[in-house]
């Protein structure tokens, strides 16, 4: 088990790296430079260059700007829905439980990628972006978060727990916000939010890579912006051909690892004492 302080430090550090990359992303990539083609990280620090001599750092920055806000937004939506699910269980109403279950059944009954692709069809070519897809993903992930938070609230005692705390003279806000949400739902809600943020990032990489493989525009960003999937696409030939693009693959995988570590550490930091 990783100590809580270390988990917080690592999680926040990874988040700051992503925010730093995304905030300082250039609007356009640098000009072509045929003298600096496929340079490694040592020859063109910090990450080397692509097939046109442009620094891979700019790919990493633009990719971070593509995923940063939508993934955090999706995480917050799922976290919020988890809180709602937990609090609704504390209300102790059978009708509300049935309505929540029906919502979960209908929303969670289809494969997520199918729904995402159908939503992607609605986005006009001129205004493509990850945000609507991230929101759709968050809605699809919400029933799971609500269900898990509801289970935690039920183990806590549900409506009887609220009643007991009220009998001790605690205010509604203290009972719900402090005792239920902050002390008990926090581990579940933060973990679900962090996992969803990670999944949305991976979704962007997958969708952009699939589009790039077919030489088509991505659903998630404009054509003049590069995604982390472009790093994987540049780097992939190094696995099967004698092309010196291993540094691009390493950078792409490294960024995936940063997102994964961030998600794991934030979830670990929020675990119950």
């Amino acid at each position: 088990m990783i100590p809580r302080k270390l988990a917080i430090a690592l999680g926040v550090a990874c988040l700051l790296v992503l925010i730093g990359l995304g905030v300082f992303a250039p609007a356009h990539l640098s000009e072509f430079d045929s003298d600096r083609v496929y340079l490694g990280a040592l020859d063109a620090p910090p990450f080397g260059t692509d097939q046109r001599g442009r620094p891979l750092l700019e790919y990493a920055q633009q990719g971070a700007s593509v995923v940063l806000f939508p993934s955090l937004f999706a995480g917050m939506v799922v976290g919020g829905m988890g809180v709602v699910g937990g609090l609704l269980r504390c209300v102790g109403s059978a009708r509300v439980d049935t309505a929540v279950q029906a919502f979960g059944e209908i929303v969670g009954s289809l494969p997520r990628m199918v729904v995402i692709l159908v939503v992607a069809l609605l986005i006009p070519a001129g205004s493509r972006g990850l945000l609507p897809l991230a929101f759709a993903w968050a809605v699809l992930a919400s029933p799971g978060a609500m269900d898990e938070a509801a289970s935690v609230a039920e183990r806590l005692g549900g409506a009887r727990f609220v009643e007991a705390l009220r009998a001790h003279g605690f205010s509604w806000s203290r009972v719900f916000l402090y005792h239920i949400v902050l002390l008990n739902l926090r581990p579940v809600v933060v973990r679900q939010a962090a996992e969803t943020a990670m999944q949305v990032t991976f979704l962007e990489i997958a969708l952009s890579y699939l589009a790039a493989q077919e030489n088509q525009s991505s659903f998630t960003h404009a054509d003049n912006v590069k995604s982390w999937a472009d790093l994987l696409e540049i780097g992939y030939p190094s696995l099967v051909l004698d092309v010196p693009t291993g540094h691009a693959l390493a950078l792409g995988l490294g960024l995936v690892a940063v997102v994964t570590v961030m998600s794991l550490m934030l979830a670990s930091a929020a675990r119950a004492r």
Binding site: F202, I205, Y236, L239
Partner: peptide, 18 residues
């Protein structure tokens, strides 16, 4: 299980092509 499907699939595609 932490490895995303797209990365796992890329590695497998490389193995098949090699």
């Amino acid at each position: 299980g932490l490895v995303p499907a797209v990365v796992f699939a890329l590695l497998c595609a490389a193995i098949v092509e090699l």
